[in-house]
Amino acid sequence: MRSFEYARAGDPADAVARFRPGAMYLGGGTNLVDLMRLGVAEPEFLVDVSRLPLDRIEPDGDGLRVGAAVRNSDLGAHPLVRERYPMLARAVLAGASGQIRNMATVGGNLLQRTRCPYFQDVSKPCNKRQPGSGCPAIAGDHSNLAIFGHSSACVATHPSDMAVALAALDARVHVTGPGGDRVIPMPGLHRLPGDEPERDTVLAPGELVTAVHLPAPPPGASRYRKVRERASFAFALVSIAAALDVAEDGTVRDCRIALGAVAHAPWRCERAERALRGAPAGEESFTRAAGAELEQARPLPRNAHKVPLVRNLIVLTLLELAP
């Protein structure tokens, strides 16, 4: 590991003031420390933000405000989250292991990097790690990479479960930075790779996530489901956060669908949601909605299995949520 300087920030303004080119913010370190050990990340200066006074979960209007330093385990175990946002609790608990959830912060979960095998291997080219070096995943092992929104420069996926639920819940990410404070609606924090895959998010250098605001929970039933290669402690092949509100006449009043592990960002299924609103809540509509979303899928030769996986996951999850 390259040598670096370390400082613990006292408050968000202190953290931002300490930030300089070559610096990185350190949360729980469960991804960053590993990337430093692999040689993927080589910060010259770590500004530790894990103990900032941003560790509270509190009611905020008709929603909830979650501090960026809240540990993943505390988010998943919080009574208000379990009761009002079970989809989010379930997404958080589906991620990583008990040990990692105890360390990982909400801000760090959002800003974790892709687990694309080429990104994590410094002996291989990777446009995200080293812009312009190429993307061996396109001709190589992309079996668990993107089917939506990828580019000729990058086919990586965002690995977070929590961020998928936040995208479905219309959460807003509060950030502070050298240019002041701003609020970014999910899923807008993360961007598609385009020709700048080195940028995972829309954050500017030195910007720091301070909180996530959850608006009132969507009406109706909700669910997070994750398909993976083993029953626990594995990243998703595909995951879904969905909410469904059905009117008394049996038609869909409103719905939210977001997918994980299919794109460079949590993938909000706006086409499927449009196709569902006002339609009868049943298998035929659900299948049609999944098809509408998948029209824009561009599977790669070795990840085409994700297309039926997405279709079946959308249909089965909505069937489970329908009254």
Binding site: L26, D34, D48, S97, G98, Q99, N102, M103
Partner: peptide, 23 residues
């Protein structure tokens, strides 16, 4: 998980924890 210890009573992977950050 072979490195699991309790930090302030909570289980954590000691391999991913920087010692300086545990001051």
């Amino acid at each position: 998980g072979a490195c699991t210890v309790l930090i302030d009573g909570r289980r954590a992977n000691a391999c991913l924890a920087l010692a300086v950050a545990q001051d």
